[in-house]
Design a protein around this nucleic acid. Structure first.
Length: 661
DNA sequence: CAACGCTTGTCGTTTCGCGC
DNA sequence: GCGCGAAACGACAAGCGTTG
């Protein structure tokens, strides 16, 4: 037994105006009858004939008899949701003028409302034509129902005559000019959604079953996922090209060379490495994605991504077998024996693709340990590009490495202001964090002020270096003159007294030749001319790292999506460029399953009276918010505001108010 | 090492547009 | 009306990885 709820909108040619509401069990105003939540088992027999709106929400109605709506010629709106309707008399709606829309919702079945409406309209009409005198009930023929992925195919039958409807597809189909059956939109849309999450076939089916929803078959979902994966890849490739063209246009408008672009790039790896430790000497599951984002606009759009996988979906690759050595398509695009960590190689492929679109690389921002810059350099040296590449390092990685450098320097431990080795070691760790933060803070402030003149910045920061050395030794004279973050001479307000790391430790290093040299060594790591040149633009790789996190969240490390890896990387890329919501809408459309626009409908009236007692003016407001229209949906048209008189009873007299006080 | 979970490939079945 | 072919889904088998 399953629950059926019916929602009907019928149109009438008349406007009712009689007084229908005398002596009727339901709530009744004018021509509106409200029978909601009254534990009704049947439709009441005495519904006024002039009723235009009739609601039966939340009752226990199971059967709709032939004369349930007899004589209700003016009915325009009928609501039967949250009931247990299992059969409807074939001629139940004979007196209702013109059936416009009917929707039906099963518990546990995914059904498109408009398709369901079409089905029942057709079933009622067909039955009426074939057996005009039959008094039987029309009901679902459950013996015939078919699941179609997440969607359903259903038909109806008559309880009395031999009428049996044809099968109806209760789902939207993907438009196609090709031959053959059409995919259900919901099945494609589902896969687009799943591509944005780490959930795949098995987990989704568990969710369905936990909710008592019959899930699609395992392989059916997988096949759809594979198809969607390819479509998403195609769409994202087109989108990346559009992003590249956009950058060119922006640079042209700025009056800059549109063929040269500043970039940030990084690689993310998906290795099920831990599964192999101590177990297998050979690790077959190895994937990576190299990504390039532009460093020209605040958006830092991704302009190229390169998924690389050693995983062959046919599982025919070994160390001695190369890509393309077996028949049919292969999801692996690098050989087993190749190094997955060869960032120079991936970067080169990325840059070559950009060059094909007429973009050459100028400033390259990478992690300090990346060899990607060498790719740009090689392309230039080989004469394939004509722009000299410049290498910059990600400032956050530099700060992190700076902390590690100071923390690992044994000489630093010796000058820490503490008596015991244990204390000094602990102080060194805090000092390293503070030193990295201090230098980064000074650098950021200098960059804000002098980013347009690198030479001035370099000169200012050389003074700052002296100030920092003095600062840690308790001398804030230089700080007050040159530091950007410790510019007040009184010690109580110095950087160290505000430091989260050092303020509790009464930190002051004894100044001598040795300690000064060590401190200078520490400061120079970050603010010395070499590192300043590498970080001059204060560029970072945060955008590509955001993509890396997005990829990790959609391709779990311990699941090897051999076939869908590429699709999931492209999904993550599209998501980062457009935002999750927009991305799903765009990708659904690309997959052939566009999300239908939602039209707005009026909500309920809200009233505000201009006075708290006596007579005043009343504004009645109504919002188009039930639901609100989607971006492409339409607003309901009409007056959203009405003006009328309101009366809130007599106001208390002056004497009454005085007595109250 | 066996049981189990997850993904993928192959084959069979069904539907539906198109041409004859 | 019939046959062909494309496309979709489901059943089943196989392979890899994890867990106890």
């Amino acid at each position: 037994m399953f629950t059926v709820t019916v929602f009907l909108i019928v149109s009438s040619l008349h406007t009712a105006c009689a007084n229908p509401c005398s002596e009727f069990s339901c709530d009744c105003t004018d021509t509106k009858v409200n029978c909601n939540s009254k534990s009704l088992v049947d439709i009441p027999a005495d519904i006024p004939n002039s009723t235009t709106t009739l609601t039966f929400f939340g009752n226990k109605i199971s059967t709709i008899t032939a004369d349930a709506f007899k004589g209700l010629a003016f009915l325009t709106f009928l609501l039967l949701t949250e009931n247990e309707v299992s059969s409807i008399a074939a001629n139940a709606f004979n007196d209702v003028v013109a059936l416009e829309q009917l929707s039906e919702k099963y518990t546990n079945r995914t059904v498109t409302i408009s398709k369901n409406t079409e089905m029942w309209n057709e079933v009622f009409r067909e039955h009426q034509n074939l057996s005009p005198h039959c008094n039987g009930n029309l009901e679902w023929d459950l013996s015939m129902e078919e699941k179609w992925g997440s969607a359903w195919r259903e038909c109806a039958k008559c309880t009395q005559c031999a009428y049996k409807s044809k099968m109806f597809n209760l789902y939207e189909e993907v438009a196609s000019v090709k031959r053959g059956r059409r995919a259900a939109k919901i099945n494609l849309g589902l896969q687009v959604g799943l591509h944005h999450t780490p959930i795949s076939t098995a987990s989704y089916r568990k969710i369905c079953m936990a909710s008592n929803i019959p899930p699609p078959s395992i392989s059916g979902m997988q096949h759809t996922a594979n198809a969607i994966s390819e479509k998403i890849e195609e769409e994202n490739m087109r989108d990346l090209q559009r992003q590249r063209e956009k950058i060119k246009r922006i640079k042209k408008i700025r009056g800059e060379n549109p063929d040269v672009v500043n970039i940030q790039s990084d690689c993310v790896y998906n290795n099920a490495i831990y599964s192999g430790i101590g177990k297998t000497p050979f690790q077959p599951a190895t994937q990576c994605a190299y990504t390039v984002a532009e460093n020209e606009t605040y958006k830092h759009s991704i302009i190229n991504t390169l998924p690389k996988s050693k995983l062959c979906s046919k599982r025919k690759h070994t160390v001695s077998t190369n890509v393309g050595e077996h028949a049919g398509p292969c999801t692996a695009n690098i050989n087993m024996q190749d190094s997955i960590g060869n960032e120079e190689r991936w970067a080169r492929e990325c840059f070559e693709e950009l060059k094909e679109d007429g973009l050459e690389i100028n400033e390259v921002t990478t992690d300090p340990d990346s060899s990607a810059y060498r790719a740009a350099e090689c392309l230039y040296q080989e004469g394939l590009t004509s722009t000299t590449p410049i290498h910059f390092l990600d400032t956050r990685h530099v700060a992190s490495n700076h902390r590690k450098f100071v923390n690992n320097l044994s000489t630093v431990c010796d000058i820490m202001p503490a008596r015991l080795k244990v204390q000094r070691t602990r102080l060194q760790s805090l000092f390293a964090s503070d030193m990295a933060a201090r230098c980064q803070a000074e650098f950021v402030q200098a960059n804000i002020r002098y980013h347009k003149s690198p030479d001035v910045m370099k000169s200012k920061l050389s003074y700052v270096s002296d100030a920092i050395v003095g600062c840690y030794c308790g001398d804030h004279t230089d700080c007050s003159l040159y530091s950007f973050v410790c510019s007040i001479s009184r010690k109580s307000q110095s950087w160290i007294d505000k430091s989260a790391y050092l303020k509790r430790h009464n930190f002051e290093i004894e100044l001598n030749e040795n300690s000064e040299n060590i401190l200078r060594q520490c400061v120079n790591y970050r603010l010395g001319p070499g590192m300043l040149a590498k970080t001059a633009k204060s560029a970072n790789t945060q955008k590509v790292e955001a993509l890396n996190r997005s990829i990790r969240s959609t391709v779990p490390v311990n699941v090897t999506y051999a076939r869908n890896f590429t699709g999931r990387v492209h999904t993550a890329c599209h998501k980062v460029n457009h935002g999750t919501g927009n991305s799903i809408v765009i990708l659904c459309e690309a997959a052939g399953s566009p999300i239908q626009p939602v039209d707005g409908r009026w909500g309920s009236w809200s009233t505000t009276c201009s006075v708290t007692c006596g007579s005043g003016t009343e504004y009645r407001n109504i919002m188009c918010d039930s639901p609100s229209p989607s971006e492409e949906g339409i607003y309901f048209i009409g007056d959203a505001k009405k003006l009328s008189q309101c009366h809130l009873g007599d106001c208390p007299s002056h004497i009454e108010l005085v007595n109250k006080e």
